[in-house]
């Protein structure tokens, strides 16, 4: 065992990379849940985003177009969730599960011819001055643009929810859809937009796994990250900045256990690989006591009878 082989600079840099898929999917789900919709299909939307992005990036040679396609792919799958829950008024839990099961199958079908291919590399930003700072430069300022987009998205979502009229309406719809409806807000339309945003974010997160983090395509490669993102929203008690904090925490655990595996710690690999899931459960237990921040209409079907 050689723990000194773990380089703290690389550790933090790869922590940020590992956290980004969870962050993107988590912030998208936060917006959907703030509007009162519980979409359990995050895992399905992520994996469809992962293969859509991968396929387009490989075919066009442009990772940028890949990420665009991933967002479209994730949103397209969430459109099915819209049809089920907002048009056909189906149970949101069951519909979300359906979305995940369907998405896993669909992605495997789409990805048949893409196994074992390397995607075009996603370029890193070369930030002058900041990137040249010793230690902190390579740690924080030498990443690809999507990683910073994820952080920016947290700020945008936070500001929108807190300071704008649109954010206020979104929260009103999530807290009491009947009251919002009585005030003349289009509850269903607002929720549809929130679900599509969540789908696009999950798609981006998925593509970040297949294009940057791994980078290649294998079936079921999201391996529960979508579910961890769902847990993250509860962990963050529906607050955007806490999503960032939580994502970095989970990213840190993932990277650390991989580093420990590589360093040959005397714990079997399988037990180390369990740790992100076990810690998710632990965190859920600690934070489950306080549900006061959950949107009051979360998961409830809205049907305007008149």
């Amino acid at each position: 065992m050689d723990l000194s082989a773990i380089n703290p600079v690389l550790l933090i840099a790869s922590l940020m990379v590992a956290a980004t898929p969870i962050l993107l999917a988590g912030i998208g789900e936060l917006v959907a849940e703030k509007s009162g919709v519980l979409n359990l299909g995050v895992e399905g939307m992520m994996i469809v985003g992962a293969i859509s992005g991968f396929a387009v990036a490989v075919e066009t040679g442009s990772p940028f177009l890949g990420f665009v396609a991933a967002a479209i792919g994730g949103a397209a799958l969430s459109l099915l969730f819209v049809l089920l829950t907002q048009v056909a008024l189906a149970n949101q839990v069951a519909s979300g599960l359906a979305l995940t099961l369907f998405g896993l199958g669909l992605s495997a079908l789409m990805g048949q011819n893409y196994v074992g291919i390397k995607p075009p590399p996603t370029g890193r930003l070369d930030i002058p001055l900041l990137g040249d700072i010793p230690v902190i430069g390579p740690m924080l300022f030498n990443h690809d643009i999507v990683l910073y987009l994820g952080i920016a998205l947290v700020a945008v979502v936070w500001a929108t929810l807190k300071f704008t009229r649109a954010g206020l309406i979104l929260r009103a719809v999530g807290e009491s859809h009947d009251a919002a409806h009585a005030l003349g807000y289009k509850v269903v339309r607002i929720r549809i937009l929130a679900i599509l945003f969540g789908g696009a974010c999950a798609g981006l997160g998925g593509a970040y796994i297949s294009l940057v983090r791994v980078p290649q395509w294998t079936e079921g490669m999201t391996a529960g990250v979508g579910w961890i993102a769902l847990a993250l929203v509860v962990f963050a008690s529906w607050k955007p900045w806490r999503v960032l904090l939580g994502a970095y925490l989970f990213g840190g655990i993932t990277v650390l256990q991989l580093n420990l595996q590589a360093a040959g710690v005397a714990i079997p690999v399988e037990y180390l690989a369990m740790s992100p899931y076990l810690i998710t459960i632990l965190v859920l237990v600690i934070l489950s006591k306080d549900k006061s921040n959950a949107p009051a209409s979360l998961g409830r079907t809205f049907h305007a009878s008149h």
Partner: peptide, 14 residues
């Protein structure tokens, strides 16, 4: 493809 059957089963739930 094997995945086509998985899609087929998911479709049923939809």
């Amino acid at each position: 493809p094997a995945a086509a059957i998985q899609v087929f089963q998911g479709m049923l739930l939809f």
